[in-house]
Write a protein that binds this DNA or RNA. Structure first.
Lengths: 174, 174
DNA sequence: TGCAGATTGTCTAAATTTTATACACCTTTG
DNA sequence: CAAAGGTGTATAAAATTTAGACAATCTGCA
């Protein structure tokens, strides 16, 4: 049943951590629960976490989620390769938009549905796991660049930092 | 004052189109207003749009935004390089999350504040305009891959579709 | 503990790609 | 119209990638 390794769960409410530990245990071999967000970065030093589930409000009386955003950014700066899923009770559209634009992989509201939560985490991990071959990544990037230069190859090559000739070479391949 | 070229605005409410045309005129040389989403794809054939501002509800009585998501996906499939900003009165967190995960560049709620709207559109265009040099893009991708393979170079090379030697070469450069 | 299999660094030589530079020919655009 | 800029193509030299190989670790597991 445990398809994945370690997940880091951060929430200041002990009952919620208990509930999540129970639910996530189905999917992850190891569920590391933290009640204080300051512990996340140290924990990431020790643990090979595959995913972080992060609550957004920690200071009592402040529910605007700003704290969660700050921690999210700190985590992503140090560990851009670990997907972070946000989880919050005081959700609003603004916050969700800012969370996702700051690099969260999903945004889930409390109360959550266990099945739904697991399903979404699976989606995140699936999307995150795939490594795109270098050549494909390159091709997509080049297409975008040429498109953005409205087909001007000379300009696109300059922006991409390669010779025009090289750009022709690469484009000719497909 | 007009810093940008053409914006495509899609909303079935004529008064809203008028208001947006007035506001966006400051920033765009050309504001193309469409009242029916079916017109978007044809319009993109003729126009060199830099940005699309898309309402999410068109069928009277249906306000769940699903229609907007479908049009968003259709647009992004045909024109992955034109940023789309969603604009809706019936916003909820779920919808915002789905919109952004489907590739929207931002998600704005009605009623909007003109200054704020222009500011957000500027941000989107700024972020979207920059073409990352091929080498930098490659380096970031390779870092991610190696990280995701937990430092196993042999595996990372295989996933990336290059020789292990090549991977060593590229990594040595930085 | 010890071994089989996987991984790492490093090396060759051949094949391929990139670069700088150049040239004639089109398109814009003032 | 003329200048400026873009295209398509070419050459030779420089750099990179590839396949293949090797001994030296490292790792999982019986």
């Amino acid at each position: 049943m445990t398809e994945y390794g370690t997940i880091l769960v951060v929430d200041d409410n002990a009952s919620i951590l208990t509930a999540l530990r129970y639910c996530l245990g189905e999917m992850f071999a190891r569920v590391v629960c933290l009640s204080r967000p300051e512990e996340v970065l140290p924990a990431l030093q020790r643990e090979e976490a595959e995913l972080i589930l992060l609550d957004m409000n920690f200071s009592l009386g402040i529910n605007d989620g700003r704290e969660g955003l700050i921690w999210l950014q700190a985590i992503r700066k140090q560990h851009p390769d670990v997907p972070v899923v946000l989880l919050t009770a005081y959700a609003d559209v603004q916050l969700a938009v800012r969370g996702l634009k700051s690099g969260a992989s999903d945004f889930i509201t409390k109360p959550w549905d266990n099945e739904d939560l697991l399903h979404k985490l699976r989606d995140v991990l699936k999307a995150h796991r795939r490594i795109v071959p270098l050549e494909q990544m390159e091709a997509e990037h080049i297409r975008r660049a040429i498109d953005q230069c409205h087909g001007n190859m000379t300009e696109a090559a300059k922006q991409l930092g390669v010779t025009r000739q090289t750009l022709y070479n690469k484009v000719k391949k497909w």
